[in-house]
Amino acid sequence: MKELSQKLERLIETAVEKEEIAGANIVVIRDGQEMAFAADGYADIEAGKKYERDTIARLYSMTKPVTSAAAMLLMERGLLDPGAFVEEFLPGFHNAIVASGGKLVPTVRPVRICDLLNMTSGLMYGGDVTSVCSMETEKLFDRIKEHLYLEDAMTTQEVANRLGLIPLQFQPGESFQYGTSADVLGAVIEVISGKTFGEFLKEEFFEPLDMEDTAFYVPENKQERLAKVYQRTEQGLELYTENHLGIMNAMEQVPAFESGGAGLVSTLDDYAKFAAMLLQEGSYQGKQILKPQTVHYMTNGSLMSWQQEVLDQCWEGIRGYTYANLLRIQKEPGKSPMFTSIGEYGWDGWLGAYFCNSPKDRLTMLLTMQLKDAGTTSLTRRLKNVIWSELCGGRRE
């Protein structure tokens, strides 16, 4: 639909002009047919390089749905039990402790795989100075960053085992906390498969799905397509080159730590294949990547009521959604701050990549940008509202 593409392009163009972003691209697919594509702005302002359809973007947390799918594949093969204890795979989680009331106490029960999938493990990210768990996690990621390019760079399993030694924020299953659970899950997948996480994903997903530009690094012959990262400052957009969450900003070599929570790069068209596979009940061009029942389980989960209360209080931007299997899943569209439909699922990333599938509308929306601390932006919500109003009747059920 040319008209929809033009509307989306104007929104992106205006955001670029206002220096909300450096550049972005978006694609909308319905029933397997492309309904709209738009791109504007720059992948590299200094070099005058445009943000194109094949621009490679750092996914950050949009890596998590891929990690979830990998866990689902092992579950359907009978190799991964979501009720199993993480300590069975990673010894760092033996005798885990919890920071409670200024004291360190034993866990009532060990962390389970399902806790990793639903972010109910008690693991955190860094940045919260009021939390022992968060501050110790911050120290660990500082150590990872310091050794990123050294021979003793920490591996995926080493990082996960070290995370297991850090006091948990709460008793496993007691609450909800967005954190490093997906990184630990990636390490569990390594242990079960006997392969690096990157090798497992390549063999089981990226090669069967023809995702040629998706990996934990960008080879030299593709580096010119990797977008630069920008941050907003009082002086306007400025280049951001720091490494974050143990991820190399330059993405120029295979990392020792392949982060299941944040490490992948991809393109619109690559991730669209992964999204299409999920929307088509695990099938892609005649290949059954996941079983239909597996996809149904993955995309229809829910937090327990007491965990949902925490999510609702701490994350206003995803009101109406629950969280399960490393996905936001829409349960009450009337509470959402943007147009959506019941059953819509997906996730976003720290630099602004955004993904959603709506089975009810047979619709996929994919957006990438490379803006520091972006997540789901105002631009994202405006783009999504236009798409839903054009294709889904502005449905808020």
Rank of each mutant, 00 (worst) to 15 (best):
R319W: 01
V310H: 01
L327R: 01
L303M: 06
Q308I: 01
G320C: 02
K287G: 09
K291I: 05
W315H: 11
S302V: 15
K291C: 09
A276T: 15
D312Y: 05
Q308Y: 04
T294A: 08
V310R: 02
Y323I: 10
T294W: 07
K291P: 08
T294G: 08
P292V: 04
N300P: 11
Q288H: 11
M304V: 10
Q285P: 02
Q313H: 14
M298E: 06
K291M: 10
T322P: 09
E309C: 07
L303S: 01
Q280F: 06
D312I: 07
E309K: 13
G301L: 13
Y284T: 11
M298H: 06
L290A: 12
G301R: 08
T299D: 01
N300A: 12
Q308G: 01
F274H: 06
F274A: 12
L278I: 09
M277A: 11
S302K: 15
A272P: 05
K273R: 15
A324T: 10
G286R: 00
G317K: 03
T294C: 09
T294D: 14
M298A: 10
W306G: 03
Y297C: 04
T322E: 05
V310P: 03
R328Y: 13
C314N: 14
Q288S: 12
E309W: 07
L303C: 07
Q307K: 00
M277Y: 09
L278Q: 03
V310K: 06
N325S: 13
P292R: 03
A276V: 14
T322M: 05
R319Q: 03
A324Q: 05
R328A: 09
P292H: 01
S305T: 13
E309M: 11
S283W: 11
E281Q: 04
T322W: 04
Y297G: 05
L303H: 02
G317W: 04
Y323Q: 06
I318M: 04
Y323W: 09
V310N: 00
G301I: 12
G301K: 10
R319F: 04
L290V: 14
